[in-house]
Design a protein around this nucleic acid. Sequence first.
DNA 1: TCTGGGGTCCTAGGACCC
DNA 2: TCTGGGGTCCTAGGACCC
Length: 407
Amino acid sequence: MTGEAGDRSDRSTLLHVDMDAFFVSVTIRDRPELHGRPVIVGGGARGVVLSASYEARRCGVRSAMPMTRAWRLCPTAVVLPAAYPEIEASSAAVRELLLQVTPMVEMMSVDEAFVDVAGALRRFASPVDVAEHVRARVHDEQRITCSVGIGPTRSVAKLAGRRAKPDGVVRVPADAVVDFLHPLDVGELWGVGERSRQRLESLGVRTVADLAHLPLPELCRAVGPRAGTHLHALAWGTDSCRVSPHPVSPAGAARPSERSIGSQATFGHDTDDTTLVRRELLRRSAAVARRARAAGLVARTVALTVRFADFTTLTRSRTLADPTDVTTTVHATACELYSALGLRRTRVRLVGVRLEGLQRRDGVHEQLVLGAREHGWADADRASDRAVRRFGRYAVRPASLLREDRP
DNA sequence: TCTGGGGTCCTAGGACCC
DNA sequence: TCTGGGGTCCTAGGACCC
């Protein structure tokens, strides 16, 4: 499965580079006393596990697990908050390092990337050679480890990478793809979550081989034409092999995708206090509107998310006559959507605001962007943005948030 | 003290237009 | 004039990923 060097005719040139327990590794790399101990990054009384060291995983701790459960499974674990500045710096450095190998780098998140090295094989003996080069540099320069999966398609590379963890390399040559994929549980496929796994199991599909041999029409009837076609391709390892390098902004950061901007927060305690809810909606509205302005975007649609004490969640959205990036407009819309729910004494766990239908601000006429009454508020927003840039994010806050602690 | 916060994409129904 | 079909927009919900 791994490592034959020098085979340049093999189309298996796609690397999936994935940092090992990234949040934990970065957060504790300067704290040697914690090395080898079970460490969990995450927390908050109502939070979940963001990342667990391999020692903590041995107790059964997993990402996205409620902290209460993680604590029960691994009472000796050290729990730390995520060191976001260091995590982001490390992620950017890894990205730079990958770009020195080839421009064909697609960051999927802070801790993983696809890299097509077909064009780099003049300088490297093989894809595995590239992988070892990258791993050595990440280890030497970032003092953390990563694993690399190599395959002819994205999904195969990703699955190979899972086999490589931690701190290893696995390459699946193009002619070994079906033998590699077919014994796997369908739930291991990228895009098959718990619900789809259950649904497929009800069709008698448990392994990828079962899925591959299910007649396509039957599969499409069960999961829809789109998902069916996609799953069929995954099962035969014929999904996309294209890497889309993100355009790079002058600051060097990958430009984030620009489809929506959201902010949500869980209350420390479920609440039925409307004043508290509206105040939180203001905080979320201010956050998303500020991000939109910073990105030069305006939104046509404002969406509200409300999660209740029983964890049921609903969304409501409204498309505005004119796109906006004005905090008060976003907040007013969110509050109207909230009021329209007609809640009385219903305990709320979380609220969130999301901007959708984003467009570039400079592509929209000013009078379409701003109604006459919005101008004053827009000016206030711009003044507030300037103050925040100069004095930090707590420099300017709406009066109703002044004495408030975060939820 | 069960269950975060950032997203993307898909589906499905109804409105509305041609 | 009793009824089609395609396309787009809006809304709500859900699955999934990191």
